[in-house]
């Protein structure tokens, strides 16, 4: 069996067994229960909510991220084991949503961690979530969900952006700028 075939089978199986850990910060978490329970029942696709990032494949971020929260999100993301996927849920993760002008909320999640898939809407309906899951499965099958590879590849870039977001004194920002120049 060639390595390529092996990978194909592996992807085929993995997409039917996606475990996720929710990072529920905003109001969007409200929409998850219908997805899990008998109305939509995501377990049909072998999806399951897990308790810890070590066990999970998907990091689902449901809402706005304050800078402090982002720190934790990054840690959670880094504690997950490859291959891992991130789904940004709701417009807050895309552009800040209703917090677009907040000094303390990050606007574009994909600057800090690689997001495989966004679900637009404020807030998205369960149908949209189900659709996103199916789309993610499709992407995994085709080998398009490569956020975890991107994170490895552009690690420095992501780290720089994270530092930039976490910096709250001017000299820290200056330091980062100096590092960039190097």
């Amino acid at each position: 069996m060639r390595n390529e075939d092996w990978k194909k089978i592996s992807r085929l199986v993995s997409k039917r067994s996606l475990w996720m850990v929710h990072f529920c910060t905003g109001c969007g978490a409200m929409e998850m229960p219908p997805v899990m329970t008998s109305r939509y029942d995501m377990e049909r696709f072998g999806m399951h909510a897990m308790a810890t990032p070590r066990q999970a494949d998907i990091l689902l971020i449901t809402g706005y991220l304050a800078v402090k929260t982002l720190k934790r999100v990054v840690q959670v993301y880094e504690q997950m084991q490859d291959p891992k996927y991130v789904i940004g849920f709701g417009s807050c993760t895309i552009n800040g949503g209703m917090y677009w002008d907040s000094y303390n909320t990050i606007k574009d999640l994909s600057k800090y961690i690689p997001v495989d898939l966004y679900i637009a809407g404020c807030m998205p309906r369960p149908e949209a979530i189900m659709d996103a899951f199916l789309k993610l499965m499709d992407m995994i099958d085709k080998g398009e969900a490569i956020g975890w590879k991107k994170y490895r590849k552009y690690y420095d870039q992501y780290k720089r952006n994270q530092r930039m977001a976490f910096a709250y004194r001017l000299d820290e920002v200056k330091e980062i700028k100096e590092d960039d120049a190097k």
């Binding site: 990032p53 934790r72 999100v73 840690q75 504690q79």
Partner: peptide, 8 residues
Amino acid sequence: EDNYLAGE
């Protein structure tokens, strides 16, 4: 230390 504890 890289341990799951409130993410930190």
